[in-house]
Design a protein around this nucleic acid. Structure first.
Lengths: 243, 243
DNA sequence: AAAGCCGATTGACCCAGATCAAATTTGACG
DNA sequence: CGTCAAATTTGATCTGGGTCAATCGGCTTT
């Protein structure tokens, strides 16, 4: 309510509880889309907004799950590490995504902020209690899980059976598509993540990602711009991705 | 009830409705584990048992979803095809697995029987209606989805970041682990699927799978037996899979 | 504006796994 | 048991993408 809104903390910043779900940016697309205005009032008290800076880790694989997270702003990378340090990014999270569900009681992947991020954090127990007698919320969470499962299967095809060119093309189109509900349709695809992140998402090395971008640019299919890619010949990229 | 139990059909065989959920093999582990005995009586009338022979397709990607399936007996391969015929197997289904959930109204992968298979088939609409006022069933389905999502993420790591040796070792141990609840623990791992299926699951070629098996056998880590693999040196395989 | 840093690009070379091509084994059936 | 057809194994060779090693270029710091 006051002008100086943030509580300062060494790393993460916790916003005072002066916000309302009703005017939340992700109200219509996140888990809360399933709640009616009356429920929303109660729901409001369960979550608190937390900010993370670029590169900060929100939770790590194998951590005991104490919270669920609803991403409000920014982009996160979700990844798993092998003991020797090899990394596979299993997905990028965007506003509206719900993170932290698992059966084991421990997170089964790690999650970092890419750039500044705001999440709505819920205590697992309180959230579970709230959901107990609200099957429509459970249904919404189930829908999100099923959607993710479908995405995960698509990604398996990409990782197991596609060439580097196809991987990169498919990634660019898929990422652009995911941004449509947030930023509208455009041939300019912002890429807030690093080349290393893209490589670890596509099961490639950073060098191959870089070379593939350069090659596509030489062929006039894309233009590499600051902070992203511009699709110059979307049809060509689509042909590669379809292949 | 009578000796001649099966209705013959050209391909699939539909069992007459003389069975009971209460003595179903997967009663304790499938979706129906969430139902109490009273509900089970009603549930019984929703599903019918259907048999498929080796190699038959139960449903195909992009088919309109009219049914859900509860696998009772046998093994299925779940896969996606690229337009040019490349195949990625996204999972193998075992008894207790629930198939067919999706948001789009169309199946997002295809499913074939590997060997003889029995499923419990439910009309989507009737099942949906039944689930409507039974949140514990929804909760069970959500649990199964979350479990699958976790498996899918593990598989992404395998496809994107593991070597052929590691893939094969991880597959053998993972498959053995999945069989424990069904057949108990053993160093003999039955492999009902073909080498091609294994290759398409691991993102390899059939030749590489064959060579890797041969190599592991030469090194004394496994023995290739009829219809499967015997783990001679489980520690060695575990070391490869952990790597 | 020079220096330093870090992510990205480019080049040279290499190798794990793919491809192509035979064997060889297995299984189904008359 | 013999015959096919299909699945698997094995061998020879090739190549897409990895590895190793410089640069390059855009920021920040001073």
């Amino acid at each position: 309510m006051t002008p100086g809104r943030w509580m300062k903390a060494s790393v993460t910043m916790i916003e005072p509880n002066d916000h309302f779900c009703s005017d939340c940016a992700v109200r219509g697309i996140a888990v809360c889309a399933s709640l009616d205005p009356a429920e929303l009032g109660e729901f409001e008290h369960l979550g608190r907004r937390v900010h993370f800076g670029a590169g900060e880790t929100v939770f790590s694989e194998e951590d005991i799950t104490t919270s669920f997270y609803n991403l409000l702003e920014g982009v996160m990378r979700l990844y798993k590490l092998l003991p020797d340090g090899r990394r596979q990014i299993v997905g990028f999270a965007l506003p509206g995504d719900f993170l932290g569900m698992n059966l084991s009681g421990r997170h089964n992947f790690s999650a970092d902020a890419i750039g500044a991020v705001t999440v709505c954090q819920f205590a697992k127990t309180a959230f579970g209690r709230f959901m107990e007698d609200r099957p429509h919320l459970l249904k919404r969470i189930n829908e999100l899980a099923i959607r993710e499962l479908s995405q995960a299967r698509d990604h398996m095809v990409l990782l197991g059976r596609r060439s580097a060119d196809e991987k990169v093309a498919t990634f660019l189109l898929g990422w652009r598509e995911r941004l449509v509900p947030l930023k509208g349709s455009s041939n300019t695809v912002p890429l807030p993540m690093s080349r290393q992140d893209i490589a670890d998402y596509l099961g490639l090395t950073i060098e191959t990602v870089s070379r593939t971008f350069t090659k596509l640019e030489r062929h006039g299919a894309i233009e590499i711009i600051h902070g992203g890619i511009s699709l110059r010949d979307p049809a060509r990229i689509e042909a590669l991705a379809a292949a």
